[in-house]
Write a protein that binds this DNA or RNA. Structure first.
Lengths: 338, 338
DNA sequence: GTGAAAGCGCTAACAC
DNA sequence: GTGTTAGCGCTTTCAC
């Protein structure tokens, strides 16, 4: 491994100068810059980022902690986050907790403040109190995509307006003439996806459909979970003409369940999801859903983390997350007349 | 941030002793261990992994470089790799190249040997020669899931027997009575998936079906790519009764294409894929495929990297990758009589 | 502009 | 068993 000192020796200058050439070239005489640069090239020198991190007191690494990257939302998010991090010269450490709080704590304990300059924490079963505790003594923590979490000074939070997203879904179903509507609510890590459901129910109420008439089935947040919940729900309530699922995976499972029960989607049953993962448009029937601004959220979460790390005051409105948008595809249609 | 020195002072010992307590407790008097441990607890000390890495001359970080984590195979792989890394006390840096060799080179240049102690390189458009060059001057590189790459001393390679996997698919189709068979071959990063196809064709030949009778359509390695390729292939060759795709994504796209052309799967057309991603069994009709030993490959790749880093000689057979296995589901059936 | 020197937090001989 | 010492490779004042 070639070190700064070797480059310095080769170029007949000191390490400090080489360092300056790399970081503040304008402070160095052009001739010296050339001399040093050619030494760097000849020797194939590459800075040791570990040493740099130690000297600077800060790594160029960001950690992203999530429950399980096998859930299709996360890879899409990771990709955007990694891209945003890279734009700012940072690397991304992916920490999979497998929905295990012990793993989450172990990660937080080891990396926060040492291996990672900041960590973006997606839903996890570690409490906010505990996270705030960790944030206090380590590097900045940024909550991301937490259902119903408030951004605070101690623990900033980047998330979508889940209530609004749910409302969009409700509006769409009502507009198609649906009145007998069921809902599948996920129970992921971090608790029930109740804010989305509440937004959905509130909008229905506004449109004159009482919440009491909406049967809600709790479900494990996955295709299989959505299948199981919808299968029971549809068997017990065959009169339903539309189903809302608090995310796309469960919506897809629900469509499978409906088909297995002999219902045609969207003819007999409309199904709408939330998130708009890639799979939503690849699936058949293509899933009507509400699209979360995933890319924006990822890059804002990274920005917040970086600003916290460097102590930069954000510009007003820099952290503004765009609203979700309705994406109409093939899994919803007009309510059948009865 | 609490440092070793502070702990030492608090416990009335020197930094060296605290270090020993943490790493070789058996070399320290139990009473001292207690004293130090309680100081650590009281102060909330956590070792600075950056400093440790610099002192040890080696990070506890592994990098995983892949073309695009949005491809569903990768999250499944990342999860296993991260789990394996964690078991060995290491962290995983995910490097997404977006199929861009320039990004891949930049990553390699920056992290190999500095931020990451080793890097697992999945298919990329950077040549093996260039990778070998980088491996020589930096930290160990381990190729993983490369189509038709040979493991060498300079550049170890962990991969599945793609030919065998293709052969399994062929055997299955032949056994079901198919004779008029088409194939969709992907062109991912790292070139065509030709070894799988060759294995498939070789097995067909063994079973008396000449390669000339098999129409091969090249495709972009994605659901959409498989759709486009299969749509053309099936339109031009309506007599086909079975389709082989060199991975599951394209197989799924092919099924969509068949359905859009009014063919029923598996009644009119059998479709088989390769890999067995999660989506394969969630999809309808559930996809018949050949299951790669993904978890084993991930953990072996991590093991190879770690052994290289530490200079450990592997036990004989430790790196043995299990064979792929046929998984029969609902997308294949007996060939219709003609 | 460039160099000398101190130090980031930890590890690892080696001495006592 | 424990302490002393010398780095790991880099950044960063502060002199010159």
């Amino acid at each position: 491994m070639v070190t700064l000192a070797e480059v310095a020796q080769h170029a007949q200058v000191t390490a400090a100068t080489v360092s300056n050439v790399l970081r503040n070239p304008q402070k160095v005489k052009p001739a010296t810059v050339d001399k040093v640069m050619s030494a760097i090239r000849q020797l194939g020198y590459r800075p040791n980022l570990t040493a740099r991190a130690l000297a600077e007191g800060r790594t160029s690494t960001l950690a992203l902690m999530l429950s399980n990257i096998a859930n299709p939302f996360y890879p899409e998010f990771v990709r955007e986050a990694e891209c945003a991090a890279r734009r700012h010269g940072h690397f991304l450490l992916v920490c999979n907790t497998d929905d295990n709080p012990a793993i989450a704590r172990a990660y937080l304990d080891q990396i926060a403040g040492t291996l990672a300059a900041g960590v973006i924490v997606m839903n996890t079963d570690v409490s906010k109190t505990e996270l705030a505790e960790i944030a206090k003594r380590g590097s900045p923590l940024v909550l991301c995509m937490w259902e119903g979490a408030q951004s605070s000074q101690a623990l900033p939070c980047v998330t979508v307006d889940y209530g609004h997203a749910g409302a969009l879904a409700a509006g769409h179903l009502v507009q198609l003439g649906h009145r007998r509507i069921g809902a599948v609510m996920g129970q992921g890590s971090g608790g029930p996806q109740s804010v989305r459901l509440q937004g959905f129910l509130d909008e229905l109420a506004l449109q004159g459909i009482s919440g009491d008439s909406v049967t809600v089935a709790p479900a494990v947040d996955s295709i299989e979970g959505g299948y199981a919940a919808a299968r029971v729900l549809l068997s017990e309530h065959p009169q339903l003409t539309a189903l809302f699922a608090t995310n796309d995976l469960m919506a897809i499972g629900a469509i499978h369940a409906a088909e297995d029960l002999g219902m045609r989607v969207p003819l007999d049953l409309s199904v709408i999801g939330l998130t708009n993962i890639h799979l939503a448009h690849q699936f058949r029937p293509a899933l009507t859903t509400v699209s979360f601004p995933t890319a924006a959220i990822a890059s804002i979460a990274v920005a917040v983390a970086l600003d916290r790390i460097t102590g930069t005051k954000p510009k007003r409105g820099a952290y503004k997350v765009p609203l979700s948008e309705l994406v109409i595809r093939a899994s919803t249609g007009r309510a059948a007349r009865t």
